[in-house]
């Protein structure tokens, strides 16, 4: 498989009143073409920030990128100008499925109006190199292309199992249910025929039965269309369901990355193990992780998990562990990884 996206040693922080919050600390992440990668971690671990950095939508005035690169199809996105990023990458090669689909629609326009507006600029049928690319508001939308785009839209709404697509297009956002809106967001994310879809906790706001439907849909469409997905979630069960591989983050550092089956069967990082042990079990025993997530303005040195880790040694306090390959595709950043009993 070919490497589609590689984040290397990305370090960035947000300026806050209390000082610079070091939200990402030398993070690495790779996604192959067509792979569904789960980015798992608890609140404040930096998974959403990483997803937004790849998407290129970090607030420029507050975010401070200290180093690293985001290589997408061989080119470093951090070296792109904002204009070029918006024209060639955002919304075309990389698209986005948000957590809250309601906030992503303008409530005063119909769904159809909003989708066609996007298609005008992001449709795969658009003519590249045309003068209107530089003055988009003035550009024409030829009737012929419009008709073809419309057919694509209806076909895709059908693919995400929205009943009666033509009627849905005439509705306003508030007339749809949460599940329908999320299906619509998935359809919109796939319309430009992207290489990578970033889905940020797309099922967190949904009920379990709807979540099961939506997860199945994302999985199937990603496979059929060979689209890679970066799927952030705090729910390990969800990650197990649809991901090919999982990367776990803790307090701005990626701690472990492995193919899904291997990840759940043989977790090597102590944090991953404790996370799995925190899941509710039938027999009623549940562990939890003592202590609290560190303050990112003054994070602990070395491995940021060391204050809560009983395996921690002096080495963990003084330096960040290097990524160690345990198996093909299974890397862990820990001086004292848990090795499965042989």
């Amino acid at each position: 498989m070919t490497e589609l996206l590689a984040v290397r040693d990305l370090t960035l922080g947000f300026r806050t009143d209390a000082g610079l919050a070091r939200v990402l600390d030398g993070v690495n992440l790779t996604i192959d073409a067509g792979q569904v990668m789960g980015l798992v971690g608890e609140s404040g671990c930096g998974k959403t920030t990483l997803a937004r950095a790849v998407l290129g939508v970090l607030p420029r005035n507050a975010a401070e990128i200290a180093g690293g690169e985001i290589v997408f199809k061989g080119r470093d996105l951090l070296k792109f100008s904002p204009g070029a990023l918006a024209r060639d990458i955002c919304g075309r090669a990389i698209t986005f499925i948000p957590q809250d689909p309601y906030g992503s629609f303008n409530p005063v326009f119909t769904i159809g109006t909003q989708i066609m507006e996007i298609m005008k600029w992001k449709s795969p049928r658009r003519v590249t190199g045309h003068w209107s690319e530089h003055a988009p508001l003035l550009g024409p939308y030829p009737a012929e292309r419009r008709r073809a785009d419309m057919e694509t839209v209806v076909a895709l709404l059908d693919a995400v199992q929205l009943p009666q697509p033509a009627q849905i297009l005439r509705k306003y956002p508030h007339e749809l249910s949460g599940g329908q809106r999320q299906r619509l967001m998935i359809a919109m994310a796939l319309l430009p025929e992207p290489d990578l879809v970033i889905a940020d906790e797309p099922t967190t706001a949904l009920d379990v039965t709807i979540q099961a439907q939506i997860l199945g849909l994302i999985r199937r469409l990603a496979n059929e269309r060979n689209v890679a997905v970066l799927f952030t979630t705090h729910d390990l069960g969800t990650a197990y369901e649809i991901c090919d591989a999982v990367t776990v983050m803790y307090a701005g550092q990626e701690v472990e990355s492995a193919p899904t089956d291997r990840f759940f069967a043989a977790p090597a990082h102590p944090y991953t193990g404790k996370l799995l042990a925190s899941l509710p079990r039938h027999d009623g025993e549940v562990a939890g992780i003592p202590g609290e997530v560190p303050n990112l303005v003054r994070p602990p040195g070395g491995c940021r998990f060391h204050p809560r880790c009983e395996r921690a040694s002096e080495a963990c306090r003084s330096g960040k562990p290097p990524a160690e390959m345990l198996d093909p595709g299974h890397s862990v950043r820990c001086f004292h990884p848990v090795r499965p009993a042989a």
Binding site: V208, T209, Q211, A212, Q213, L215, G216, R219, D235, L236, G237, T238, Y240, E241, I242, F264, A265, L276, L279
Partner: peptide, 14 residues
């Protein structure tokens, strides 16, 4: 609809 870690993927035949 509840995902079961280690079990069969529920999305396959929900």
């Amino acid at each position: 609809a509840i995902p079961r870690i280690g079990g069969k993927r529920i999305t396959v035949d929900f």
